[in-house]
Design a protein around this nucleic acid. Structure first.
Length: 503
RNA sequence: GGGGCGUUAGUGAAGCGGUUAUCACGUCACCCUUUCAAGGUGAAGGCCACGGGUUCGAAUCCCGUACGCCCUACCA
């Protein structure tokens, strides 16, 4: 508890637009957002588009879409602007160059003219011979200013490298791991400015974090090994580093081998858009993902955004890696689906029903009422919204799709034909088409036949829905409507019960 | 190969020197019930990775070992 310097909390999400937004990155974005909101600070969005080779313009939009869908609003960033605009690194090149020059002038960095071929050969040789550090051999570090200037003037391509001290240890402070000591001899002189004039991550992120007054850098564990470089850079510049926070990685499980590894495509969905497309609710995903590496302490699991904000703290972040368990995500999403209000359920599920061709994309009031009724009936068994389509399909159209096993089990069986005939008569004569009216009719049918209600209910369900599982039968029939039910009973009787109906 | 980080039931977590090691998911059983789901009750599942310390006492503190993961680019 450093009571001394109460710095305003400013965090950022700074992805590189090089592909589809990954759920692992978004966990860190969530933590950053939560921390900022918890302390009334600011959360910024910054594009680290310094890699011209891998830059993908579509990725930028996908990132913004994912941020919006996930509910992470940002106070400053591309599009919304802010006091430190622009928020795209490709448009802040001058500031990186200035810092690089400053570092060269103070002797903390130097120009390197080595070819990639030489560098690669050197790396391999040193690694093989186990000479520390294993990377670049600092060949150009010995160049005099005059030599470097001469080479530069001659037009030879060059990069700027940071001059890492060859001895001693670098100490870094991590909010979740405590003090970490790293031997400098393991660190080679990394590149700050590439030959195309663009900065590397090592330079760019720290310059921006500094000028944008970022207080906490929350990023995955994979950055831990290069953090000493960042600390060294800060020291060279006389800057105070931000508070580093490195939560453990999110791992996936390979379905083939059962082994765990960094979450990737082979472990199912990993991109934010996929979760959306599969019908996960953003609040459920956020709740689940937050718990992968963080806990409010105690038994709390289901938490609203507001609760998460008020409960969030760095102390609750875990340093060990965690495995993404999609079974638990499904359960949690189900909890959120069940909690949905009637209108939210409709709004969220409608796109999936429309896409499946079950409803219009923008249905009128009459259809909306029916779809709502149907969704409420299936609500408690939906794990995802995408499941709403197959779950409610039988509520639409003349006839359902009859499942083979269901037909065999409940219709092609002794007594089924008689049961269907009896319910059809009773339902046809039912005074009012309400849940209780329908229940009376069905029970009356069973009484007349002298069988248990279940013996009538099961065949009726299959005849009316094509399946053995589903919402309560009486509610289902009520929603379906008398005409459609009678038609389906007649059809099922004629189609499936012919053989056994004789006896 | 080198370095860093990590290690509590199958999974996610709680625990911060004294508990029969807690909760959730999953699994199984039973209850509820017209089916499924939901809900309820209960069970199985841990030598708290292993080995040494420190201590009256260790899952909790220290050291070592093993294993796992990450990094080791003019990518982030």
């Amino acid at each position: 508890m450093s009571a001394a310097a109460p710095r305003p909390v400013r965090t950022r999400f700074a992805p590189s637009p090089t592909g589809l937004p990954h759920v692992g990155n978004f966990r860190n974005a969530l933590y950053s957002w939560l921390l900022a909101r918890r302390h009334g600070g600011q959360f910024l969005f910054r594009l680290e588009d310094t890699d011209r080779e891998r830059y993908d313009p579509a990725s930028e939009q996908a990132l913004k879409d994912a941020l919006a869908w996930f509910g992470l609003d940002y106070d400053e960033g591309p599009g919304v602007g802010g006091p430190h605009a622009p928020y795209e690194q490709s448009r802040r090149l001058a500031s990186y160059r200035t810092v690089a020059e400053q570092l060269i002038a103070s002797g903390h960095a130097y120009r390197c003219f080595c070819t990639r071929e030489r560098i690669q050969a050197v790396r391999e040789a040193r690694q093989k011979a186990n000479i520390h550090p294993h990377g670049y051999d600092r060949h150009c570090r010995g160049l005099t200013h005059a030599e470097a200037a001469h080479l530069l003037d001659s037009g030879a391509p060059s990069v700027v490298r940071f001059a890492v001290p060859s001895e001693g240890d670098t100490l870094l402070q991590d909010a979740v791991r405590g003090r970490i000591s790293y031997p400098n001899r393991e660190l080679d002189d990394h590149v700050l400015l590439k030959s195309d004039g663009f900065p590397t991550y090592h330079l760019a992120h720290m310059v921006d974090d500094r000028t944008m007054e970022i207080s906490h850098v929350i990023r995955s564990e994979e950055w831990l090994p290069s953090t000493p470089r960042h600390v060294l850079q800060h020291q060279a510049l006389g800057w105070e580093p931000p508070i580093y926070v490195h939560p453990g990685l999110i791992l996936g499980r390979d379905p083939q081998s059962g082994k765990t590894a960094k979450l990737s495509k082979r472990h199912g969905a990993v991109h934010m858009g996929e979760y959306r497309a599969q019908g996960y609710l953003p609040d459920a995903l956020a709740n689940f993902v937050a718990l992968l590496g963080w806990s409010p302490g105690g038994d709390r699991e289901i938490m609203s955004r507001a609760e998460m904000v008020s409960l969030f703290s760095l102390e609750g972040i875990n340093s060990s890696p965690s495995v993404f368990d999609s079974d638990k995500l499904n359960w949690m999403n189900g909890v959120y689906v069940r909690a949905l209000s009637e209108t939210d359920l409709l709004d969220n599920a409608l796109p999936f029903l429309a896409e499946a061709g079950l409803t219009a994309a923008d249905p009128g009031p009459e259809e909306r009422r029916y779809v709502t009724q149907v969704l409420r009936l299936e609500q408690e068994r939906l794990k995802t919204l995408s499941a709403a389509a197959p779950a409610t399909a039988f509520f639409f159209g003349e006839l359902p799709e009859y499942e083979e096993a269901a037909v065999r089990k409940r219709l092609q069986t002794p007594g089924a034909a008689a049961a269907l005939d009896a319910v059809r008569v009773c339902l046809n004569e039912a005074a009012d088409w309400s849940v209780s009216g329908i229940e009376n009719a069905v029970r009356t049918a069973a009484d007349t036949l002298g069988v248990k209600p279940a013996d009538v209910i099961h065949p009726t369900r299959v005849a009316a829905t094509g399946r053995t599982a589903g919402p309560g039968l009486f509610e289902t029939l009520e929603a379906l409507g008398r005409e459609r039910v009678l038609h389906r009973l007649r059809h099922a009787r004629a189609t499936w019960c012919r053989v056994s109906g004789a006896q």
